[in-house]
């Protein structure tokens, strides 16, 4: 073996070693969440730090689903996230289309403003939004949350949709207009079918963003029946002393929709993250 081939083997081994560390770091927390959620409560303290419990149970999940309000929270979160995703995608598609296809006065300024809204501290508007929405009856309501989340996510989604519209050649629209479409018909018949996958991805991005939101939900929602999943989980922790197994079972359930949408948008991660380098 030459020094060159030895060197290459070392590199290859090193890479796998480094990658394993990354995988371990990425997955261990999620693994532990799962590990505790399936441990019987009585074994929790005696086997607290062993990697796998000697007995496995789904009891925690059953309690969470049957005896707590988590199913309601879950449903509330689904309502809010889906509502937000749909509204945002609709509004952002229109705006993204305008950015992609038109030259107009104030375009640069509007784009800059959109970018700016992504930079300023959202906690800053938490108090004014509460005060402005209260007289409108939008506090303590899922509709209110949808309105707020839609506004917050619209700039990012606009940039995302713009990049999807940019990917549709302008010639296609021109051809459609020559073939007899108005610009609007060309949008509906030609451009939209081609951006549909992009719209699905946007839907996924916004759904996950809305699913994670905590602070505004904490501030704006009071009544138990309107609580979203993140708030519910947080309340659960502060109210009931510590039932670790149930908490982690609930936490693991919160992962499910996020993972589904993550799978949905895998292909578009790069587009999404570069379009909204500002967004988590």
């Amino acid at each position: 073996m030459t020094a060159y081939t030895i060197n290459r083997r070392l590199w290859s081994t090193g890479r796998y070693l480094a990658l394993s560390l990354y995988v371990l770091f990425a997955l261990f927390p999620l693994f532990w969440l799962f590990r505790v959620s399936i441990s019987p409560t009585k074994l929790l303290y005696t086997e607290g730090t062993s990697l796998w419990p000697s007995m496995v149970t789904i009891e925690n999940y059953l309690i969470v689903l049957q005896d707590t309000s988590f199913p309601t929270y879950f449903l509330n979160s689904v309502t809010v996230s889906l509502g937000t995703a749909l509204c945002t995608t609709l509004i952002a598609s229109a705006a993204g289309y305008a950015f992609s296809r038109f030259k107009f006065k104030g375009k640069a300024i509007i784009a800059f403003l959109l970018l700016l809204t992504q930079m300023f501290p959202l906690v800053m508007v938490i108090a004014p939004i509460y005060r402005l929405m209260q007289p409108l009856g939008l506090t303590d309501s899922l509709t209110g949350l949808i309105v707020v989340y839609t506004a917050f996510n619209t700039p990012f989604a606009t940039f995302l949709m713009q990049s999807f519209f940019d990917a549709v050649p302008k010639d296609l629209e021109d051809a459609a207009m020559i073939d007899g479409c108005t610009r609007f018909q060309a949008l509906i018949r030609i451009v939209l079918p081609l951006t549909l996958p992009g719209m699905m991805a946007t839907l996924g991005f916004i759904f996950t963003a809305a699913w994670s939101e905590l602070l505004f939900a904490l501030m704006l929602i009071n009544s138990e029946s309107q609580v979203t999943f993140p708030v519910g989980l947080l309340n659960f922790i502060s109210k009931f002393s510590v039932d670790w197994g149930q908490m982690m079972a609930a936490g693991f359930l919160a992962l499910i929709p996020a993972c589904i949408f993550f799978a949905l948008i895998q292909k578009y991660l790069v587009t999404g993250m570069t379009a909204g380098a500002v967004k988590g």
Binding site: L27, P29, L33, T208, F262, Q266
Partner: peptide, 22 residues
């Protein structure tokens, strides 16, 4: 491997926080 190491990004932030607090 790529899908696995990118997974934390999909975890809702509040859950990441709780998970690490635990």
């Amino acid at each position: 491997i790529q899908a696995l190491v990118l997974l934390p990004w999909a975890v809702p932030t509040f859950l990441s926080g709780l998970n690490w607090a635990w």
